[in-house]
Amino acid sequence: MQDISEASDAQLVTSIGRYSEVALAEVYRRHGGAVYGLARRVLNNSAEAEDVTQEVFLRLWNQPDRFDPLRGTLRSFLLAQSHARAVDAIRSLNARRAREMKDAVKVARGSYDMQHEVWDLSLADKVTRALEELPEEERRVIQLAYFEGYTYVKVAEILNQPEGTVKSRIRTGMRRMRSVLNEAGVQGAET
């Protein structure tokens, strides 16, 4: 019998499809910290991040078929789920009320400090460096969109820039990031 800790992520998802709680626990052990970490970063609230984490893993339990191993890693899938749910939460009316536009800009400019929050310092270092290499205007739109949960339309409004410019900067910045990360040997979310 194969040791559960040696099973691939895809095998674990197949086992989850057979209602293996052990397999779900192993997936949680491998990826729970990343799912929670991203949700907390976006929401800036531990309790809400726990809710998002719980929702992501319960969704994997109830609908494991939504993971497509041909499109990417399980880590990538779970992080996308975590981010989407965190963004949904933060875009809700109550969350939006709590955020003043000027505060958001201030946060995006000043509080991004990944190195103190991540465990995987090697990856964090590469991502931080890739972000730092971006021109300021590209870095800001990506941070506002990804870590603050704003749509590109809202980012344009916050920064008082044309929507087309924001779209273009997000795209250019992401391409630049991809190139730098690829050169640094970072491939998606391999674990």
């Binding site: 709680e21 910290g33 726990e50 984490t53 719980q54 991540v118 995987d120 991502v127 998606g188």
Partner: peptide, 26 residues
């Protein structure tokens, strides 16, 4: 999506009791 995954791939210590909460709801 690879880049977005790298951006969001910041692992944090998981709060105690979260797994128990998840497993009790599955």
């Amino acid at each position: 999506m690879d880049v977005a995954t790298a951006l969001g791939n910041s692992v944090e210590p998981i709060p105690e009791g979260l797994w128990n909460s998840i497993s009790s709801h599955i």
